[in-house]
Design a protein around this nucleic acid. Structure first.
Lengths: 258, 258
DNA sequence: CGTGTATTTGATTCCTCTCAAGTTTAGTGG
DNA sequence: CCACTAAACTTGAGAGGAATCAAATACACG
């Protein structure tokens, strides 16, 4: 059905994956039977991507939108002299390419940061769903707008915070986002990013990221076990970061009476 | 009909304003008669805002979405220690608060940078329009997604470019955006921003912005007459900035055959 | 024309980068 | 299962770009 890019392997159907997508959408809007049936009727494939595989290719017309079932992915752009900036992170439960749903070509690329599996839907089918099923359309709007809100907060992070606050802020954000997916256990989570990638997110070099990590550890704000991060006191880390979770719009995820 | 915030003055109806909104939407999608009638039937007010007036208030439930008819506006956020970051710029033809259309409270504030006039529509009416008229819904999706694309490019700007390239990039972007609105005359446009505001966009101090401006002038990349900026050679400035206009998705603005 | 705002300029400091090298970890094949 | 290798992490020294502090000049507005 869909062409298969390198690094991706199609594994076919999986009712469990459909259930996860419905659950995700129902976190922000109320669906009726027709809405759920429309999702169930979506043409789709579950795909596995190996670490580092391209999920969205820049300057190409996007054909597929992927809902992340497992693993992490990133959006990134490059300057003309080859420097990289990671402009977005996607974790399980996020859409990888909703940003391209109505655009003719992608202004960025997306790749998997770990081995990932995703629910891939042809763009055309998703576009139709947005207009045919208003409740689903609203959920996708909300998802895209929250992603934009995160971009705005990252702009503040890069523009107005020093290196320590930037990294602390990133760690706080990930803690709050992973919490919702149940990926936090005893204030710990795995951060599947190299220090170079953390630098590409925060506008720093990997050398400086390393120094800041050590400083965060020495101040007792985090504990590291390999790539596991423990945040013994999220409030303290948040204070160091100037973190305020409003921009994550977590309240959108509760049931809304309208 | 709508409550009037301080600094804003409602001036009532204006058929010319409705025409401009329709024109803007028709730049990206094809509308039929019913679509146009739905826009004409929108409840709205034309409002004037004086320079510095709040157009969107942070943490408050947004009630109105404004389409900018004249003047410039900005989106901004603050760190907990009071530093400001301007995360978005709106020029005539942009929506001021589309980012909040489906969110319960705003994560940022918006204010006018000059005296402005805007076409203000109650959010509820705009939400209904998105679902009742798919063509209009698509146009608003595109607008929101292009705004998000600009956020991504600004992230690259802050994370990976030095001061000179950052400011050069901003000037290139504005040149291309203003061009579409006919606000460029003989490679010149008015930049209604103080150097402090340019610093708030680019993550720099006003002192350093001043020095970079002088450097851009001494290199012949720009000429300044007060707040008029002349770009004698957009290609040269673009090269200094590493500017690539793809992210503005200007091709979305042509007619699309689908 | 006075007054507050914005711009300009200089001197100094410091945060982060760059360059360089060593160490640890993870992955691979014999 | 261990040796080998590449990638990732760590540490140090020195350089540099932008911030900070301070003050003077230019400009807009009532």
């Amino acid at each position: 059905m869909l062409d298969e890019p390198p690094g991706a392997e199609t594994v076919g159907k999986d009712p469990e994956a459909v259930r996860k997508l419905i659950e995700k959408i129902e976190a922000s809007v109320r669906l009726d039977h027709a809405d759920r049936d429309a999702i169930i009727a979506l043409p789709y494939e579950v795909r596995h991507y190996s670490r580092g595989a391209a999920m969205v290719v820049e300057a190409e017309p996007p054909h597929v939108c992927a809902f992340l079932l497992d693993g992490w992915a990133s959006q990134q752009k490059h300057t003309d002299d080859g420097k990289r900036e990671i402009v977005g992170l996607m974790i399980p439960g996020d859409f990888v390419d909703l940003q391209n749903i109505f655009l003719r070509k992608s202004d960025h690329e997306a790749q998997s940061l770990t081995d990932t599996s995703a629910f891939a839907v042809p763009l055309r089918a998703l576009q139709d769903l947005v207009f045919d099923r208003p409740a689903i359309g609203r959920a996708l709007w909300i998802d895209a707008l929250v992603a934009a809100s995160i971009y705005r907060e990252w702009l503040v992070n890069l523009g107005r915070r020093d290196a320590l606050a930037r990294i602390a802020h990133l760690l706080c954000e990930l803690a709050r986002r992973l919490e919702r997916t149940g990926l936090i256990v005893e204030a710990q989570y795995e951060l599947p990013l190299t220090q170079e990638q953390v630098g590409d997110i925060t506008g720093l070099t990997s050398v400086h990221v390393n120094r800041v990590f050590k400083k965060l550890v020495s101040q007792g704000l985090i504990v590291r076990y390999g790539r596991m991060i423990e945040i013994p006191n999220l409030g303290a880390l948040g204070a160091a970061a100037g973190f305020d979770a409003t921009y994550l719009h977590l309240d959108q995820m509760l049931d809304r009476a309208d």
